[in-house]
Amino acid sequence: MEGFFKRYLRLYRPMITSLNELLSTNELSYSLWEVVFYIKKNGPSTLVDIANYYNVEKPTITRRVHRLEELQIVKQIAGQDRREKIIQLTESGEEVYKECRGKITDLEMRVMEDIGQEEREIVFNILPKIQENIVKKGRE
C-alpha cells in the first residue's frame, strides 16, 4: 500500500499540533502529557517503566518528569531501592489530568465526526497492530 506513511504523517503532525495547543493552557505539551497519562493509567511508576513503554531513552523521561515536578503535577516517592525513582501524580496533577482528559476526549470526538461507528472501531483496532508490526520489524 504505497503512500501509507505519507498519509499517516499528514494526520499525525496536525494532530500533535492540535494537542499541543489544547494542552498549552495547562503549560503542558503532548510529550509531557504522555507521562501524566501513563502514571494515571498505571499508577506510581519508575522512569524506566515509562521510558520502556514509550520506547524512548530514560534521560528523555527524566527531563519530562523534572518539568512536571516544576509544575507540581508529579512528585517522586521513595522506592525499595534508593536509586529507583518512583513517580506519582500529585493532587494538582490529578486535577490537571481530569481537565486535560476532558479536552482531549472532546478533540477526539470532533476529529471522528462524520465517521461511522464501525469505521471508528476498525481504525481503533488496526492502529495497535500497525504499531506492533513496526516494533517487531525494528527488532529483526
Rank of each mutant, 00 (worst) to 15 (best):
L47Q: 11
E2F: 07
I104R: 02
G43C: 08
R13P: 09
Y8H: 13
L19Q: 00
S92M: 04
K58A: 07
I77D: 01
T90E: 00
I104K: 04
V65C: 01
S24M: 10
Y54K: 04
C100E: 08
E69P: 02
V96Q: 05
G43P: 04
Q72D: 12
K85D: 01
E99F: 15
Q72N: 15
I39F: 10
K85T: 10
G102D: 10
E69N: 05
E2T: 11
T62S: 15
T62M: 13
L9K: 08
W33A: 05
K58R: 12
L22I: 06
R13F: 03
T105L: 15
N55Y: 12
I39W: 09
K41A: 11
L11I: 07
T90V: 07
V36P: 06
D49K: 02
N20H: 07
Y12K: 07
L9C: 11
L68Q: 03
Y54H: 04
E84F: 09
Q80V: 14
E95T: 14
E91D: 06
T62N: 15
T105V: 15
S92I: 09
K85A: 09
L28T: 09
I73E: 05
D49L: 01
K75R: 09
V36L: 09
K6F: 13
L19I: 07
L22Q: 06
G43V: 00
D81G: 12
